[in-house]
């Protein structure tokens, strides 16, 4: 080492750290391709369902009158719709604050083989001002219709 010139050592250090950082970047991109969970609205699921074991997010409105509690008292069934398609959802948990029929929800989970969406987590509308980001893309008109349709 001592024979090595200072300049060379600096170069090697820079190269090693660059390699590590670029490695981290490439690794991140590779990891993201496999692990990012994609967002679907019911119409997307009807048109092009995701693979059964892939974690995805489903967003839409909870249809009025569709919320049912199973005999065990903790499993719930409900239907998420966007005015074009409907997806039945099963969720075994305490529902989050603000989860109710006729309001927006984003469910994280997987689509089962029978077409029922098995949710591990529900993100409900947080307050009056908050709309799940993915649902902002629905036009005002679409959203109104959706709300009308599921009321």
């Amino acid at each position: 080492m001592s024979a090595m010139k200072a300049k060379h050592q600096r170069l090697i250090l820079v190269l090693i750290s660059m390699a590590a950082l670029i490695g981290a970047g490439l690794l991140a991109i590779w990891g993201l391709r496999g692990n990012a969970s994609y967002f679907y609205v019911p119409a997307d699921i009807a048109a092009n369902p995701p693979a059964a074991d892939r974690a995805v997010r489903l967003g839409g409105m909870v249809e009025a009158g569709s919320l049912k509690t199973a005999p065990d008292g903790v499993t719930i069934h409900f239907v998420v719709g966007d005015g074009k398609a409907r997806v039945p959802v099963i969720y075994r948990n305490i529902v989050p604050d603000l989860f109710k029929e006729g309001s927006g929800v984003v469910a994280e989970g997987k689509l089962g083989h029978d077409g029922t969406f098995v949710a591990d987590n529900l993100l409900a509308k947080h307050d009056e001002k908050y709309v799940p980001r993915e649902m902002k893309d629905m036009t005002e008109d679409q959203a109104c219709k959706t709300v009308e349709a599921v009321k």
Partner: peptide, 14 residues
Amino acid sequence: GMKVSVGPPYFNPF
């Protein structure tokens, strides 16, 4: 034009 979210399956191992 894609909507994705990234969670523990990515962050934890990486």
